[in-house]
């Protein structure tokens, strides 16, 4: 293969500059800022700040409420990730059997992905409306008096359901294309070797989907942790007090409602470290991922 080279040293730098600038302005600069302010105690009225060292972090570690929210976030992430992946896989396997290559259905199913998280939250709000929400009515009909925004557990359930609902389509698309990239003849060879469809799925299809699965696992954890913010914001709007929230939402609540910029910055730094760890883990996996040929 022929490599095209740059004749001057400045052209590549010039071409990279806009991207580097964007990364700097929207990522490194705020991140550095957050790291910096996590070592200070901010005056709530903006009249200066005092250096407090690691106090903000110590406070976090000793804060019962923060730990409670961390545990909830963990549970929330596990549930959303598991159900998003499981439903998507189930749907993809079913769809794959009927619509080999039918692109229109794929596009239709993909649409849900185009819904912005707050809109998803709003649709959830309508579905779970106290007096006329169809899902509330359905739950009432089976004897569950569902009260969104009042009962902690009910609100948490709604958060999980809406977040899963929002994420299933994108997982579905990935799983479906993963399934469709398994050579037809490999599945046919398995049909001759194994009479049980379930056995074939676990022995052949599932392992061949593993690379897609690993990738989605990381994306879905990231999604549950961070991107559900908009959904949660709409669902618990107004009274975050007793309602369940995730760590990301807590950063927002403490920083912008409670005006505790130092504590909130410390929380963001903790989350940044988490993202960093996840990213490293993902890169490791991608590197080691077995390339079947």
């Amino acid at each position: 293969m022929k490599r095209a080279g740059f004749t001057t040293r400045w052209l590549p730098i010039l071409l990279l500059l806009p991207q580097l600038l964007i990364i700097f302005v929207f990522f490194y600069w705020p991140a550095g800022h957050a790291l910096h302010s996590s070592f200070f105690l901010q005056d709530p009225f903006g009249f200066g700040s005092t250096f407090v060292g690691l106090d903000n972090y110590r406070d976090l570690a000793g804060n019962k409420e923060y730990m409670r929210i961390a545990r909830f976030t963990l549970l929330f992430t596990l549930l959303v990730t598991f159900f998003s992946l499981a439903f998507a896989l189930l749907l993809a396997v079913k769809a794959d059997n009927v619509l080999r290559g039918a692109k229109t259905y794929r596009t239709l199913l993909m649409w849900v992905y185009a819904i912005a998280p707050p809109v998803a939250g709003f649709i959830g709000l309508i579905m779970f409306d106290q007096s006329w929400g169809p899902l509330t009515r359905f739950l009432q009909s089976i004897g569950w008096d569902f009260t969104l925004g009042v009962n902690f557990r009910d609100t948490a359930t709604a958060m999980v359901i809406v977040s899963v609902w929002k994420q299933v389509p994108v997982n579905f698309i990935f799983f479906l294309s993963g399934l469709q990239s398994i050579p037809r003849s490999v599945r046919e060879a398995a049909m001759i070797d194994n009479r049980s469809a379930a056995g074939r799925f676990w022995d052949v299809t599932f392992p061949l989907l593993a690379p897609t699965g690993f990738f989605l696992l990381i994306t879905n954890i990231t999604y549950s942790l961070f991107e559900t913010f908009g959904t949660i914001d709409v669902l618990v709007k107004g009274e975050p007090g007793n309602n369940p929230m995730t760590l990301v939402y807590k950063v927002y609540v403490d920083g912008f409602r409670g005006n505790d910029l130092g504590g909130s910055s410390a929380q963001s730094v903790v989350l940044m470290v988490l993202v960093l760890a996840l990213t490293i883990f993902q890169f490791r996996l991608v590197e080691r991922r077995i390339h079947y040929t």
Partner: peptide, 17 residues
């Protein structure tokens, strides 16, 4: 699977994993 046949495919169709 119940026809007691074996098939060899053009691209071999081995299980890659």
């Amino acid at each position: 699977a119940d026809r007691d046949i074996a098939m060899v495919f053009q691209n071999y169709a081995l299980y890659p994993h």
